[in-house]
Each structure stands twice: as C-alpha cells, then as structure tokens.
Design a protein around this nucleic acid. Structure first.
Lengths: 203, 203
DNA sequence: CGTATTAGATACGTCATCGTAGCCTAGTGA
DNA sequence: TCACTAGGCTACGATGACGTATCTAATACG
C-alpha cells in the first residue's frame, strides 16, 4: 500500500483549450506582477500549475507566450459612431481606454508590456504587428473622421495631433497615478474643456 | 621577475568624487540598457570598472545607486517666463521635455525608471519624493499661471487638465515612437493647434 | 614619513533560472 | 480496448547574481 507517487488530489489532467487558457491567464497575471523582464518560464509554470516542460514543448520564450495571450485577449471591438452625438461619441471613445485600464488583468499586463516596449523597439514593433489590430486603435480618431465627413467639424482640424489628445491625457493620468483610474467625469472634462474647443465646436 | 599581480596599466586609483561620478554614470547607462529589473550590482561594477565590494560598501541595492544618480543629474532649472510672449514661453516649456527625452543618457534612463514606476507604486512615490523637485515639474503649468495672473488668459482655463496637455502629448509621442524625438516644429503645433485654442487665445 | 582610509581583487557558498532529457500516466479516439 | 498523444514529474549541469569575507595596495592627511 505504498502510495508511491502522490496518488490522490489531481484526478483530472487538463489539455488543449483548457490548459492553454490557464497558461494564458497565468502569463498575464504573472507579467502584471513581476513585470516583463521578471517573466520566467518557471514562474508561468508555477502559476498555471503545469510543468515547465509543457511550456517548452510549445513556446521558446516567456515573451512568446505573453504575446500570444495578448493577441487572444486584447479587445478588438469596432468603436461605432452614431450620427448625431459628437460629444457623446467622443466621451465613449475615450471611455474605451478607461475600460482597458480598469481591467484587473489586462490593464496591468498592458502597462508592463508598454513600459518595456518604450525601451525595446523590437518589442514595440512586435506589439503593433502581432497584437494591435491592422486597423489599429485610435478610437478618438475614428469618431472625429466620422463627424468631419458629415460636415460637423472642420476636416482640417482632424489630424494626428488632435486625434491623440484624448488618449494621451488618459495615458498621462495612468503614468502619474499608478494603479488608479481617472475620477468619474474625467472623460467628459477632456471632451468639454479640450477636444471641443480644439475642434472649434461650441457646446 | 614574475609580475605577480598584473602590475602595469592601472597606475591610478579613483576615489571620492571621481569614483562616485563614474558609478553614477555607469548606473545610468546600465539601466538604460538593461532596464531597471535587469539592474545589478555586478553589472554596475563591471561598467564602472570598480569592484562589487566598493558598491556594497556604500549602497545596499542597485536601485539606491540609481536614485542617487538621478537625484544628482536630474535637471532642476527654474523655467522662467517672460512677460510678453505667451506662445514662445509655452513652446519653450514643452521644449524642456524634448531636451530631457533627447539626452542620450538621462532620457533612456528616465524611460526605464518610469516604466517600472507604473507597475510599482512605491518606486513612483520614491521618485517623486527623492528625485523630482519639491517644486515639481509641470513646466507648462507655471507659464500658464504666470500669464493668467497677468490677465492674458482666463484663470478658469488653467487647471490640472489643461496644464497636462503639452507634456502628455510629448509623452504619448515617446510611447508611440520609441527612441525617436518628435519632429521639428512639434511643440509649435501643440501650442498653436491645441493649447492656444483651449486657453481661448487667438493667434 | 607613517598611519588611517578607502579602493580593488579574489574567492566562496547559496540560490534561482535556464534549457534539456528521460520516464511515467491520463485522456483520446480509431 | 488498446495504442498513441499530450501533459506531468524529476533531475541535471550550466550560468550568473547574490551578499560576505579576506587580503592587498593606493591615496590622503597629519
């Protein structure tokens, strides 16, 4: 009756999708906690409760796992713009960024990755080609274009710079207040005090 | 005649200020290259061409050395604002950020540190209390206040949000284009297309 | 000139991660 | 039901950072 190999407990063994999801989850949590450079195969394995070998079988580096996880989990929603509510659509567009920042898993993970990407151009490129959509981001920009096409705003005032304002202010908030979300109404203030004046629209 | 301990070469031995400066320089270069989590006593020692022991004698962690180096090297200039050229002063204020970003040593080092600080609130606090001045930053903000006091702009339009615009756009540029500086004239565009309209000033 | 400081060199045991190898076993599906 | 696949376990030598101890040598300073 010698239980010669820890017999009990783990009755079931995960495979395929189930295991993959667990690993993806693990890598995101891990990177959020330790930062990208602290990301290690052993760490991921520990957290996913799987074996290091199982990781090496499929991937060759922690970063590869991470990118794959992000590609799967990163939100790809097409922000839609109505036809009548410029202000509301702008607020909503900026709000998408708050959603991302507020995601308890994806938010910190993205922070950690973007941090590193600032110092490692190859990673930056990789994120853009492998994670961010071909269509790519720029929530605010789409809304602006839309209303410019409708003649509600001067098309000349829609450009790379003005389209960046909303996202950049949200970004700076994140940088200045690690771990916090902007206060309620922050998006509205951005739109009312900055974007609309810049676009030459009177409330 | 056995040269029993590598006799030649190193005739002089650094100490005090000279050594300290070399170490500070080394830690900044090192962190720029390896990132903060990759920062190690051995690495710093190697680059400064000193002994690990000499580091441990004075500091207890790589991070301590780094903070000290930053405290010494971080620019503390009082941005002055004249009385007559709002536009020019704003451009200059934002330009200070370009200078920092463009510094081949301090720029990358600050990037690396800020990256980490986003994920490690204690570090963020430490930077603010030990590196950034008591007076603290906010180049643009000072200029705005100044001209508001002079009655050139509506004081109600000078607040946390509007004061952040310039820096945040420069920051976003850095995030989106790792290793690059904004194109010539970028500050001017920020001022002309964004800041002045927001402040309700017509060119 | 001689002594007290301060740097530099070397070595050590410990620890965590690396990437790989070898073998065992639960689940799957023909 | 049985063979095959995919996952799990353990162990390994290698590497590199850790923090400390010990000794030697250069420089400053009285």
């Amino acid at each position: 009756m010698n239980d010669h190999k820890r017999p009990a407990a783990k009755t079931t063994r995960r495979r395929g999708r189930e295991l993959l999801d667990a690993i993806h989850q693990a890598v995101l949590l891990e990177v959020a906690e330790t930062g990208l450079p602290g990301l290690t195969m052993e760490g991921i394995a520990r957290r996913a409760e799987t074996a290091k070998t199982s990781l090496y079988r499929r991937w060759t580096s922690p970063e590869d796992i991470l990118i794959e996880a992000l590609r799967e989990r990163y939100p790809r929603e097409n922000p839609t713009a109505g036809a009548v509510d410029l202000r509301g659509d702008l607020v909503a567009a900026i709000g998408l960024m708050r959603e991302l920042m507020g995601d308890r898993i994806l938010g910190p993970a993205m922070l950690a990755v973007n941090s590193e990407a600032m110092v490692r151009p190859e990673l930056h490129r990789r994120m853009w080609t492998e994670v961010y959509d071909p269509q790519g981001e720029r929530f605010t920009w789409r809304v602006m274009e839309h209303y410019a096409a409708l003649g509600h705003i001067d098309p000349a005032k829609v450009n790379d710079l003005t389209a960046d304002i909303g996202e950049s202010l949200m970004l700076k908030y994140a940088v200045d207040h690690p771990g916090e979300l902007p206060p309620k109404g922050y998006e509205e203030r951005i739109v009312d005090e900055v974007l609309l004046p810049v676009l030459g629209v009177r409330p």
